[in-house]
Design a protein around this nucleic acid. Structure first.
Lengths: 196, 196
DNA sequence: GCTAGACTATGACGAGCGTTATAGCCAGAG
DNA sequence: CTCTGGCTATAACGCTCGTCATAGTCTAGC
């Protein structure tokens, strides 16, 4: 035994993030998730004893941090390259899933929390957004953007990409993401001092 | 008889749009919707005999067109005023609901359609986005923006506002919408020929 | 006042949900 | 080999879901 757990746990998390990004949190059932992740139903409660709440929270964190890692790496080449990678990442997910999958963080963000508490999955979603914004803002200021304006610009980038992902799914086409990509690219070039 | 129907029908529609904007489509149950709209459960099937599909489709159309009307009216004062009204509208909904409600069009857009068909509610969502983008693009070109770039700019506006609504809900604060408002305002001023 | 037709009230159907309980399997430690 | 404990299998709990059927109420037109 020894090793506290197998690759099953991570497979469940990945499957949960994917499923949430497609259907939303409430519409993702643990039974179907188990089937989708090729794990037995009992195992989900073995690995995540607090049930759906815990599973959702960890899935959002997992996905959010995966994107954070990619973003951090690509931003080493500068903000333009980083934003381009950010857009390409989501574009790939949307296209590869035939416009059926999107961003799990967004999916969790648009579901009403219960009246009495703020679910930890929603907190994890907010943290993911903040991480992405912070990384972008730092890269922008590091490359010459006005430090007062960089956070706002970073928020615009994240918001427009998330919105464009949803629009692509509704329209079943990549135009919104491509349009946003173009606009952001010139906008960032401008903010960095640019050539016109 | 005579009058084909009462104000009940519209009340159900409004309630459905509100509920969808909070919980998403799949998580909105007809039973709770009826309670929320103070209509009997039987009435929902009387007014919408095709059931949830029809109800969702009409609710999305209803909400989308309501926003379209507001947007069209406010754009008469120019693109800056129109975008400002657009943002203020959503800001009000988010704040008044204590960050529990958002955009029903976005909510429908991020839910996976069944494998065999594209649900009409999703088509209605795509149409709403397109209407908003078209109105914005027309206003931008009419006020001096480069006609080649206006559609992309309009898409960026819609995408960033939708994304910011979701981010506000996750963070339980209005900063994202306000940041996006500021960025869009200067961006539009620029695109219109501006003073720097 | 009576009747037709728009609306409402109520209850049932099968299905799926989250969750729990119980029992079984099976690799590795002693 | 035995035993232990991580993992799996199966069945069941109460609940809510979308939908439908049936019967009842109310009002407008004659």
């Amino acid at each position: 035994m020894a090793k506290p757990s197998a690759p099953s746990r991570e497979r469940i998390l990945v499957g949960a993030a994917d499923m949430i990004s497609r259907r939303g949190l409430k519409a993702t059932s643990i039974r179907e998730l188990a089937k989708h992740a090729k794990a037995p139903l009992g195992s989900t409660y073995h690995f995540f004893p607090e049930g759906k709440r815990q599973l959702a929270t960890e899935a959002v964190r997992y996905a959010g941090e995966a994107v954070t890692r990619i973003l951090r790496k690509e931003l080493d080449e500068g903000p333009v390259a980083g934003v381009r990678a950010f857009l390409t990442l989501w574009r790939g997910i949307v296209v590869d899933s035939d416009f059926r999958a999107g961003c799990p963080v967004l999916a969790v963000s648009v579901e009403e929390p219960p009246a009495d508490e703020i679910p930890p999955a929603l907190v994890a979603a907010a943290e993911a957004f903040e991480d992405w914004e912070r990384l972008l803002a730092e890269a922008l200021t590091a490359h010459g953007a006005d430090p007062d304006r960089a956070p706002g610009l970073a928020a615009l980038i994240v918001a427009s990409v998330e919105g464009a992902i949803a629009m692509c799914r509704a329209k079943r086409g990549v135009q919104p993401l491509d349009q946003v990509a173009r606009q952001l690219e010139t906008l960032i070039a401008d903010a960095l001092g640019h050539p016109a």
